[in-house]
């Protein structure tokens, strides 16, 4: 079977290693990984920058982390080139596992360190300084999504329907927070979106 040929196995190993590297050198996740992705793919001949930008827009529209989605897609593409459909499916597994490996290793190491420092005052001061920054970063991420949802590029046009839908969800959250599940809200809003946009 071509999916288990020597050439295909080599590509799977490469996928794992390249995505390990990408995972290890990208901080902050998501779009911060884009430059790394592009450089590595061109080096490997898996994809051009233009092709990758198409992947990226698909990755942003589908559920899950953008980096994971892109890794799965590229793994499928590179695997399929050497091993057919089955090769693609296997390639996706190796790329995605490669991306996750550095996270798992680093987080477990860090968890152990933090456990030891539990009552350390410097660790607490460190987090005292970082927590407000994290909230600011989440606010910023929310604003970035809002910017592309509520406005056309360069604020040339305002999408009032989106803003009103967002405000309604905000009101629902304010009064019925405990009763509604965010997943239900997202699902309902997707259906509403089909009818109002």
């Amino acid at each position: 079977m071509e999916a288990f040929s020597l050439e295909a196995l080599k590509v799977y190993a490469e996928l794992y290693l390249v995505f390990c590297k990408i995972g290890f050198f990208s901080f902050g996740g998501g779009l911060a990984m884009v430059p790394l992705f592009v450089v590595e793919f061109q080096k490997q001949g898996w994809m051009t920058a233009d092709q990758f930008f198409d992947v990226l827009s698909l990755a942003q529209m589908t559920p899950g982390a953008i980096a994971v989605n892109s890794a799965t897609f590229v793994g499928n593409e590179a695997g399929m080139a050497v091993g057919g459909r089955l090769g693609g499916i296997i390639g996706g597994v190796f790329a995605t596992a490669g991306l996750a490996t550095p996270s798992v290793v680093c987080i477990i190491a860090l968890s152990e360190i933090l456990k030891k420092l539990k009552t350390n005052k410097f660790k607490q001061a460190f987090f005292f300084g970082i927590k407000p920054v994290t909230i600011a970063l989440i606010l910023f991420a929310g604003w970035k999504i809002a910017e592309t949802t509520f406005f056309e590029e360069g604020f040339s046009e305002i999408h009032w329907t989106s803003i009103i839908l967002c405000l309604i969800v905000g009101i629902v959250l304010k009064f019925y927070e405990k009763k509604v599940h965010p997943i239900a809200l997202i699902a309902v809003c997707s259906v509403i979106g089909i009818f109002i946009f």
Binding site: M61, K131, P132, I135, I138, L139, A141, G142, I145, A146, T148, T149, F150, H159, S162, I163, L165, C166, L167, V169, G170, L173, K174, E177, P182, L185, I186, V188, C189, S190, V191, I192, G193, I194, I196, F197
Partner: peptide, 28 residues
């Protein structure tokens, strides 16, 4: 699919805003 996605995004903006507000109140 694009329209459904627009609806979901409007909802996510509200959800993130709500989370930020709760985190801000609780930790700052």
């Amino acid at each position: 699919a694009q329209k459904a996605f627009m609806g979901a995004r409007a909802c996510i903006v509200a959800l993130i805003g709500h989370s930020v507000w709760k985190m801000f109140k609780g930790s700052v």
